[in-house]
Design a protein around this nucleic acid. Sequence first.
DNA 1: CCTCTTGAATAAGTCTGCTTTTTCGGCCTA
DNA 2: TAGGCCGAAAAAGCAGACTTATTCAAGAGG
Lengths: 252, 252
Amino acid sequence: MERYSSRGAAAQNAPAEAGLHARVLEDLGTAICGGELAPGAILNIDELVERYAVSRSVVREVLRVLASMGFIETRRRVGVMIRTPDAWNVFDPQVIRWRLASAGRIAQIRSITELRTAVEPHAAWLAAARVGHDEASELVGLAAKMWAAGKAGDEERFLRLDIEFHRRVLAASGNEMFVKLQDLVAEVLSGRHHYHLMPHHPHEQALQLHADVAQAIQRRDGDRARSAMVQIMEQAFDEMTAIWEQAGTPAP
Amino acid sequence: MERYSSRGAAAQNAPAEAGLHARVLEDLGTAICGGELAPGAILNIDELVERYAVSRSVVREVLRVLASMGFIETRRRVGVMIRTPDAWNVFDPQVIRWRLASAGRIAQIRSITELRTAVEPHAAWLAAARVGHDEASELVGLAAKMWAAGKAGDEERFLRLDIEFHRRVLAASGNEMFVKLQDLVAEVLSGRHHYHLMPHHPHEQALQLHADVAQAIQRRDGDRARSAMVQIMEQAFDEMTAIWEQAGTPAP
DNA sequence: CCTCTTGAATAAGTCTGCTTTTTCGGCCTA
DNA sequence: TAGGCCGAAAAAGCAGACTTATTCAAGAGG
């Protein structure tokens, strides 16, 4: 199988056992996100059939999926045209993974970080109004565990608890889209780990702020929950800024 | 062609000239979003081939797209299983359209309204830091036109300008995901129109607030831009609340 | 010389029958 | 009862033929 994507970080998520569809999709997806297939470029089905040495049905199914992501447009008598990035479904988790694997990695991380900076404080505020008793208690418990893990210097555990904490706050907001958002953030965080862009040495203050959020939500003090979350986001944002100022890091 | 979706608002976006793929996708998408095909239900390809009287290739291509949206899961020896809503890509514009056509319409409108309530103030704040000279001027001009249209009572024109204004603010934030978000919001607003859920009688104060946002962004006063946008969002949110309190409206 | 019609070439869209692979579920043995 | 074997079911994949829409260019007519 000849590839478009230059065999870097690509195709790692779709190894041999994954089926032809997944492998071709993975390769074309990374190639488009990575710019190896530039917007405006034109392919045709037979060319892809030859290149990947798969049947027409496989190629056609992949093209349908790519079209639904806004990556391509097919026209009779013309072929398959690569679309410009502004048409892409940048909220699709799969697209985010591909972009994290591309040179636009830093931009992707920044976009999502800004997005959560906007959303999570509001989610905390909503959560204070809507959370159930048990949910609130668990949130407080989780904050306590984070505090312990942070104090003990157990970074791995802290990171897991951190992600779980934010997921629960978003879940408690009662907004399905906020919950989904956490999946995207998780993509970024795990991607950040994968590409060795990890800072995350929990500050003393961050530990306290998470506890504040949990407590404020439990006491249904929306404004306090929001302002504590704003501070958490400011810290997270500063961390990210530090990352992309030492940018240019080619990374694997 | 026999349908799953009960021939209501469905299949209106994919009429006869659209091709078999689009029509089958439309019908299955609305059926799943509408709950006619419940999570856990199992289909198989041949059944769909018979039901829609199309070939296997059409069905398989549709299934691949639905799978990439998190709607279904296919397993050998089992068939095609409908997945639970928490697996759906609720940020996909197509999914949003289907949900707006379903009984969960109100929930969808609420989710997105909450999302933009969270995002737009932050976008305004970012825009103040990043906007270019021309962009800022145009924003001020746009706010002025809105003011005129609002005063003249030209609702149609006001609505168009309103959408354009918010799009530009999001664009000026320099965050690609924020821009994409506006597409989703536009889906909701036009859906709201389509399903006759329009309030929108521009208040005097709203006119002033839009002008405030534009001016603050031009003067690079992020905090003032944000707080004005917060107030706009509060008004928009109140409008929406009014809609779903008179809920139960079956609508077309 | 320009416009309009026509028609042929092209590439996607659709259909069909076939082979391969995976996996479930029952059955058999230890 | 646990573990392994086997057969059937269904998706995955393949190959090729036919259909249809679109484009582009040549030729007819003004």
